[in-house]
Amino acid sequence: MAGSGEHFKALVRSHGNGDDEAFYSVALQVAAQAARQGHHRLAADLKTAVEGARAERPTKVTSIAQPRGDLSDLVIASHPTVTLKELVLPEDLAVQVQRILSEQRQRKSLLDHGYEPAHRLLFEGPPGTGKTMTAAVLAHELSLPLLTIRLDSLMSKFMGETASKLRVIFESAESQRAVYLFDEFDALGGDRAGNDVGEARRILNSFLVFLENSSSESLIIAATNHRSILDKALFRRFDMVLDYALPDSKQAAAVMRGRLGSIAKGIRWPSLADHMTGLSHADLVRAAESAAKSVILSGGTRVTADDVKVALKSRQAASLG
Rank of each mutant, 00 (worst) to 15 (best):
L284F: 07
S280H: 10
D243V: 11
D306P: 03
M256V: 02
D283V: 02
R286I: 00
T304E: 05
A305I: 08
H281V: 06
A253C: 07
V295F: 10
S249P: 01
L246G: 00
A292H: 11
R259A: 06
V255H: 03
A245D: 09
T301I: 05
I263D: 02
I267K: 06
D239S: 09
G299H: 14
E289F: 05
R257I: 02
D283F: 00
A273E: 15
R237Q: 04
A245R: 15
G278F: 12
D274I: 08
V295M: 07
S262T: 08
E289S: 07
V285H: 06
D243C: 07
V255K: 06
R237F: 03
M256K: 03
F238L: 10
A291W: 13
G258P: 01
R268F: 02
M276N: 03
G261H: 10
I263L: 14
V285E: 12
D283M: 02
D274S: 13
G299K: 15
A252L: 13
T277C: 03
R302W: 03
W269I: 00
A291Q: 15
K265V: 00
K250M: 05
I296E: 03
G299V: 08
A282H: 13
K250A: 03
F238Q: 09
E289P: 05
A253N: 07
P247H: 11
G266V: 01
K250E: 08
S249E: 15
V295A: 03
Q251S: 05
H281N: 12
V285M: 12
H281K: 13
T277V: 05
V303T: 02
D274A: 15
L246M: 10
R259E: 14
R302E: 02
R257N: 01
R257P: 01
I263H: 11
R302D: 01
K265C: 00
R286F: 03
H275L: 14
A253F: 06
W269C: 00
A305V: 09
G258F: 02
D283P: 00
A305G: 11
A273V: 09
G261F: 02
V285A: 06
G300T: 09
P270F: 11
T301Y: 04
A291Y: 12
I267L: 10
S249R: 15
E289W: 13
S262P: 04
V241E: 12
V241I: 12
A282N: 11
A287T: 10
L297Q: 13
A252T: 04
H281C: 08
L297P: 01
W269Y: 03
W269V: 00
K265Y: 02
S290Q: 15
Y244R: 06
R237P: 01
P247Q: 14
P247D: 10
M276Y: 08
V241A: 10
M256F: 08
G266E: 05
G258K: 04
A282S: 15
L284H: 04
G261Q: 13
G299P: 09
S249K: 15
G300N: 14
W269H: 01
T304K: 15
A287L: 13
